[in-house]
Design a protein around this nucleic acid. Structure first.
Lengths: 351, 351
DNA sequence: TTACAGTGATCAAACGATTGAGCTAAAGAA
DNA sequence: TTCTTTAGCTCAATCGTTTGATCACTGTAA
């Protein structure tokens, strides 16, 4: 089961190796290879240096560079839950832009940071990373956030505003919720409920606002008992539908503020013998590949998560390099309805 | 929208700051704080140093340490697809053990590494990371792998063996497939099909072997047309069922080698009007929270992914510190059937 | 002839930690 | 008293880069 391998790993070529081979000084090599604009070098030596570097397969030593320049070109991404389908699109956006900007992403699961704020401080204090992008979750304490703000860490919060001292990048939550309402209204639904997030969270508030606004625009009433706000996870979606189902006159359609909660809603509907979409139309915010796997497949509103990621990394870059703290709202592309099979035209069941 | 913040970020305290405050030399501080066993220091000075360090909130500079010791205590995890539900359990295991061992994990999406092997070489060549754990995907070229082997990088492949020069950690694939078969057989099914992975991959082969073995043990025939092997993704699951459904005498139950493919199987079943589990029982390898969201919820065989992650990190640690290359198979816990609603007792439809 | 600007390269001091070797004083041995 | 040992420190080199300061040289102007 085991086998020892002699490790012949000849050490990487360094600047001075290249310098020796090219017959020049270390500084000349450094200036040429790091393409510094102030490099007054003759074409001949430049070529000799580049050749030598290529022949020795030279790669700059990350640690040495980081030490000298006191920046690592690495940023940390803190997410509450890697399992979340939403995270992966976000990650993809961040990663892509990071690569363009010459950065790498260190993924940190929030759960793994036991003494959370402290861990973050370590990350930056040790100058392992140049900045931190945090995707807020319901579980993140405010203590964590204030600690984050107080530390002078370049930080950025994704999809949550009203935090002084750290930047933010936010989704068009109102527009997304409104799009969902408009879809249902256009199908003839008048009794539309909301399965929302925790009222304490910023995004849940915005989605609720968008929902209310669109209902008003459509001239539809919103009874208080049609509004729930248990949270974004599956179990909380179940709880919400379970409550809505007991109403004397239950909604004929609901907007679910998060796709994960919608999974729970669907399960609970099955459990209650509520047929989707015949008895109840469901549209959820956020699109993900998992929406195809439910029965019926979920109609969703796709939110620009990929762009959220890209913009986050861009804002982080700005913050690091110019100290500018921005609050960005993604508007392009706009939330887009993805029609599947969980919504249908309203049929008067109480005819 | 923008607001500039003056950055008062006073630089981190260094060893010499601590030394100055404690009135001792830098080396004394280093020896005390890095708890080196060869530190002959009086209790008095030790206490002075520790106090000074605490007061200044000293944290060792990562880059400096990495430069001097030429190791970073960071490993890279390369995954084909962050979206994959399987990945998150694996990641959790790796991350947890990494933390115990004083390591951090740099997540690298394989898709983001355009010139893949080259990127890897960069990662290690620059000594950004001490080693690389690779979760193989269908899309990973053999060129990539041979490059990985040839480089002297401490590397480890997850769930794929037969690679000289790099270690491996593998799931109990045969046992998992066998457990699935046994469950179906115990329900009275005799015509059992396999929706497998690509025959070129190691894990697909082992699962196919486990399937065949268990079928033989149960005294059940396996017609060649009951065996498919399109791949582990949803679309390929659809393709597989679409093919199986055309058979004159289709299977009454199938084992799907991967839960993601099972989602596709389920969709295709719906499309064909095949009722699950009445007309077709389905059991999939790998459990994930998404299995609860399908209709009907999927019966699965839970594979020890978390333990796979932990073992991987442990093996990586071994590899880095003692050069020992191991091939580990996870046996504990054994694959476990998670009963949901996609399987039921066989009823003779052709009576 | 002397001075001076400009070019192309080198020197050397950092960055912050680690660590083998060397130093000093006190204690013990001869 | 003198020599050796040892506990308790400090010295100084080193890891690989970056970068302001410096230097040697050539060509030009005064």
């Amino acid at each position: 089961m085991c086998e020892t391998s002699p490790i012949y790993t000849e050490p990487m070529a360094t600047l001075s190796d290249v310098a020796a081979r090219a017959g020049v000084s270390v500084s000349a090599v450094s200036r040429v290879l790091s393409k510094s604009p102030s490099s007054r070098v003759s074409d001949a030596t430049r070529r000799r240096i580049e050749d030598a570097a290529r022949e020795l397969d030279y790669r700059p030593n990350f640690a040495a560079r980081a030490l000298k320049l006191s920046r690592t070109n690495v940023i940390a991404l803190v997410v509450p839950d890697v399992t979340n389908a939403i995270f992966s699109e976000l990650m993809r956006g961040i990663d892509e832009r990071a690569q363009e900007l010459g950065y790498m992403v260190l993924l940190a699961r929030a759960e793994s940071m036991q003494h959370q704020a402290e861990s973050l401080a370590h990350l930056v204090g040790q100058s392992k990373v140049d900045g931190v992008i945090v995707q807020l979750g319901d579980s993140m304490t405010t203590a964590y956030l204030t600690a984050l703000v107080q530390s002078q860490i370049p930080a950025l919060v994704v999809n949550s505003r009203r935090l002084g001292g750290v930047g933010s990048v936010t989704l068009p939550d109102e527009a997304g919720a409104a799009a969902a309402v408009q879809h249902l209204a256009s199908l003839g639904h008048r009794r539309i409920g909301l399965v929302g997030g925790l009222a304490s969270t910023d995004s849940a508030q915005r989605r609720a606002t968008g929902f209310a606004g669109a209902m008003a625009d459509a001239g539809l009433p919103v009874p208080a008992e049609y509004l729930t706000g248990f949270g974004y996870e599956s179990a909380q979606g179940r709880a919400a539908l379970s409550q809505l189902a007991t109403l004397v006159e239950p909604p004929s359609a609901i907007v679910v503020a998060n796709i994960n909660a919608a999974f729970g809603v669907l399960l609970e509907a099955h459990a209650h013998g509520i047929r989707v979409p015949e008895d109840l139309s469901i549209v959820a915010l956020h699109d993900a590949w998992t929406a195809d796997n439910t029965w019926p497949p979920l109609t969703t509103v796709r939110m620009p998560l990929y762009e959220l990621g890209k913009a986050s990394m861009a804002a982080m870059f700005e913050r690091i390099h110019s100290g500018v703290i921005t609050d960005v709202v993604i508007t392009d592309p706009a939330p887009e309805l993805v029609l599947r099979e969980s919504t249908s035209v309203y049929r008067r069941v109480f005819n």
